[in-house]
Write a protein that binds this DNA or RNA. Sequence first.
DNA 1: CTGAAAGCGCTTACAG
DNA 2: CTGAAAGCGCTTACAG
Lengths: 349, 349
Amino acid sequence: MTRGKRATINDIARETGYSKSTISFAFNNPQRIGVDTRKKILEVADQLGYIPDPMARNFSLQRQRSIGFLLPQKTEFSIRNPYVYEILVGISQVCQDASFTLTLIPPLNESLSAAVRNAPVDGFIALGMKVDMEIVDVMQKRQIPYVTIDGVPSADMPSVNIDDETAAYSMMKEVLGFGHRRIAILSLCRDAYYSENADGVVSRRLRGYSRALAEVGMSLQSEGIMMLESECNIDEGLKAADRILDSGFCPTAVVAMADILAIACIRRFSAKGIRIPHDVSVVGFDDIGEAAYSNPPLTTVSQPGAEKGRLAASALLGMINGKEAENSRIVSQFEVVMRDSLGRPESGK
Amino acid sequence: MTRGKRATINDIARETGYSKSTISFAFNNPQRIGVDTRKKILEVADQLGYIPDPMARNFSLQRQRSIGFLLPQKTEFSIRNPYVYEILVGISQVCQDASFTLTLIPPLNESLSAAVRNAPVDGFIALGMKVDMEIVDVMQKRQIPYVTIDGVPSADMPSVNIDDETAAYSMMKEVLGFGHRRIAILSLCRDAYYSENADGVVSRRLRGYSRALAEVGMSLQSEGIMMLESECNIDEGLKAADRILDSGFCPTAVVAMADILAIACIRRFSAKGIRIPHDVSVVGFDDIGEAAYSNPPLTTVSQPGAEKGRLAASALLGMINGKEAENSRIVSQFEVVMRDSLGRPESGK
DNA sequence: CTGAAAGCGCTTACAG
DNA sequence: CTGAAAGCGCTTACAG
């Protein structure tokens, strides 16, 4: 319609005869000016279709009221992962309560660091280990607060984590307790979670597995163990399942680091007539919504994605509001959830 | 670390002896200045930890490189709906390719229109009918482009839709074709999709159902029809299923306007020992990912959420880049997908 | 209660 | 190749 220029505060000032200050107060500080003044200003503003420009306002106020969620992969892959999605839900809840907006930031032309340079937000939440030195450097230069989920905590970088090592240890212990000794470990692609410091989620979980294996005289290098990695999405999970099948390794149990990978295995195995857990057990990690409804229901480690999102977002908002980074290690609780996809290996097999 | 003030372009200018213009060019227009000049500038910038402030830059450039996705409900409910989620994926793909960021905008303190006033974005994509006159008014005042998905298209407001009426007609026709004559129609809550103009998605689908019923001499008011509404999430779906069960109406088929509602019915019914489709058939709408994996697999109408998101985002980006709103009616194709949750009613029943 | 002025940190014609 | 200056549209001490 009104294809002219937008009305600005100057137009309203000129039109009403009041100063810009007064116009501004009419919108942001009504009690500072006369009732009639305000009324007249709002009238004219309405006539001219004036709305204070949010960009100008934010710039002047030196804030955006938006927090950026750095996605580890292209958006589609990231949010198709139900665990990431849970985190997103948690973050969004906190944002909403704080009247903050949530900006999804995928790697821009493959570079997350370019995205971090340019994103107009007040703070970042990063997922996983993609937070390499370059990105941290950019965030520091911008002097913008940030929090990591599933990252490696450090003084500058608060992180929300579960105790991954113990969680992995507990899960593996269950698996071994059921008598399994030929186990395929389906790990996460280093791509998404790799850390130079070598202490990312993957490493920590591997340590946990290792510890449990040691208790029965095995190690990650034992012949009874097959190790493989996969990107964290259904399609790659199906391929990984094929890789297991084709390897001839014939594990009695598959221990996956993500439910979607575990579920992909279950689907693929079932399609081939392999019965779960009769022929092979499968356990996951995360306890995504589908885990309880897969067939059979998935035994897994439950970690509270939404809660982790909420914790990270709250910590970040605190920092944005000037509170010093509280403790840099924020810990959520995990829980091993026994369902039906883990059973005893067939003795006769 | 460097807890001082951030370095600004002025600091670099002072430090290097060059003007702000030159500093700016060093970052945005390298070829306009001397190689050595640039080198020196970048050096100093690096020393001082200077990064051009994105907010200031965007403000000056009068753009944000972000598009806003207006969520119909609180973020958590919205994105927990797999259909919305598909749309989100589609939008995000286009954003990513265009190096745009995606801002999730839930109703701010219950008011979407306040959110629309304040969101620092270059354009909006709105989902469903929440786009009432007030919101449209705000967007027009801001002179910011917008596109609707599942909305009511108009000259000012391009909309991406499937032909909901025909889709609903086709689905109902199948149901009737199987011989069903006692049917519960599980409709969407007007809350999320209601339009003053009374021509939102719900109305259009009801017209379609109505047309199919007329062909067998029935109408939405027939005794064979039970109508009920539900908010579009799993929990409400379970409650709706209970309402059907408790009503004593005993339909032979449930026709739901969303897969999550249909799936909730299936779950609840199954839990009560009701066999599907043997005792009651259930059909959905949307064809979300889980539809194919529910037990039994869900007969539904497939509509391409991701594609709709992509179409909307592309149209919006076009408008942001100054192209006139192309045609305001963008149509996606639907498809009735026959799986196993629809069968013949038990004749003896 | 109201206004003049400085400031937020960039970009970009325009002139040299 | 470089700089002075205007501009993007607000907010907010400060003074009256």
